[in-house]
Amino acid sequence: MADDLTLRSHRAKGRAALGNPAIRFDRLAAKAVDDGWYQDDDLPVLRTSVSEEMIGKVITRNASPDLSFDRSINPYRGCEHGCIYCFARPSHAFLGLSPGLDFETKLIARPNAAEQLRKELSNPRYQPATIAIGTNTDPYQPIEKERQIMRAVLEVLRDFNHPVAIVTKGTLILRDSDILADMAAKGLVRVGISVTTLDPAISRAMEPRVPLPAARLRVIRALSDAGIPVRVMAAPLVPALTDHELEAILQAAHDAGAVAASCILLRLPREVAGLFQEWLEAHFPDRAARVMNRVRALHGGRDYDPEFGKRMTGQGVWAKITQQRFKLAAARLGLDRRLSPLRNDLFARPPQKGDQLALF
């Protein structure tokens, strides 16, 4: 039975969600009621817990026409960054956990991801193509500092000369600059850094455990200086809250060394819509109605339209204006160029224990 009682039994300090909405697969739900005895200061702080999942398959395939990749890896389920807008939140429901606070605090690590990846890449029938990492949950969220699952995955990809595209908001990626720089020199890697706003106050409220915008810009600079191509991702762009910053975000990223840019409008699938609206009312009550009216205008009058070809870009006048603004700003800054495809031709299975030595 799912519940939204977590906020009443703990202080959710540094979290974005205000509670745990019911899991859509459960038949029963409980709702918290304030009886007047609730005292926030007397409650313990809600802590992050991490469990482990030993996986039998690490490369996930997709056939979405909206995506530029057909395979991805997720070292972790759930994400401590806690971005209130995260479209991956509903995936926690498949684990019997809530897309709300559970998604931010009940994390699952996959410690054998690198070992399983080595097995899958060693399959003689495997055909290489760019693997995307960070497209669901962030591989450089705080627990990676201790777990180092992402680094182990990168070491395998480096050993096989396998191309990889990484998306992150985490500064921890700089730890792996040694691996990434070697791969970038061979045309095997590129990185996307998501910058949603330049306002530290909005960032702290909207994505409470993500490094602040200035820190992400420093990551762009450091990676670029190391020869690693970086795309800035103005994503998601929140109408009537952060959309006015689009040009400033692109300019700041360009100045930091980004070589390309992309922009994705806010989308609110399943439980994310309710979580986001609760957050809006709590943090920006003066503009909550305006934001949601604009969101619905983008999605045909609904909180979200999942139709392929529309869900990322939206529809209507405001969507067209935003696309035009992005194209003009990106062209002015030289961020509209198409990056060269990552190389597949270097892929090779490294010698394995027990292999026969080549005669020639």
Rank of each mutant, 00 (worst) to 15 (best):
T197P: 13
A205I: 04
I228K: 02
E144P: 02
A258K: 09
P75A: 03
E120C: 02
K145N: 09
A16E: 05
N344L: 09
Y85W: 03
V317R: 15
D336C: 11
P90F: 01
W37G: 15
Q277P: 11
N112H: 00
P229A: 06
Q251C: 09
R24I: 10
E278A: 03
L237G: 07
E52S: 13
L339H: 00
V195D: 05
L7H: 12
Q251T: 15
R332K: 15
T6D: 05
T135S: 06
L237N: 09
P128D: 02
L357V: 15
T137Q: 02
G192W: 03
A214T: 10
W37S: 15
T130W: 01
S224T: 14
H81I: 12
L43A: 12
Y76C: 06
F94Y: 11
R24N: 08
L95I: 04
K310S: 14
P269I: 05
M150F: 06
A29V: 12
L298T: 13
R349E: 01
L280M: 14
A215R: 09
A113T: 09
P44T: 04
E278T: 07
F160R: 01
T6K: 08
F160I: 01
I166K: 05
R61P: 00
Q323L: 10
R24Q: 04
L7I: 11
T196L: 09
A109C: 06
E155S: 09
Y126D: 05
D34A: 10
A297T: 11
G187K: 02
G14I: 11
G192P: 09
K327M: 02
M54F: 10
A12V: 14
F103P: 00
A288V: 06
R332V: 06
R325K: 13
A235N: 11
V317H: 13
P128Y: 08
Q356G: 07
R147Y: 06
E245F: 03
D70A: 13
L212P: 07
M206K: 00
A132F: 04
H299Y: 15
G96D: 02
P341G: 01
F87G: 02
V189S: 05
A289Q: 13
H162L: 03
E155R: 08
T48M: 08
W318A: 14
R15L: 13
A330V: 12
D345M: 03
L346Y: 03
E155V: 09
I264E: 11
E115A: 07
H92D: 04
G134Q: 04
L157A: 01
G300D: 14
L217M: 07
D70N: 15
R24V: 11
L43W: 07
V189G: 06
R287N: 08
A329F: 11
D355I: 07
Y85K: 00
T313F: 12
S194Q: 08
Y38V: 09
A12P: 12
A282Q: 12
L67D: 05
K57H: 15
L217T: 07
I228H: 05
E80A: 12
G19W: 00
A240C: 15
R47M: 07
P200C: 10
R47S: 13
G170K: 01
A201Y: 04
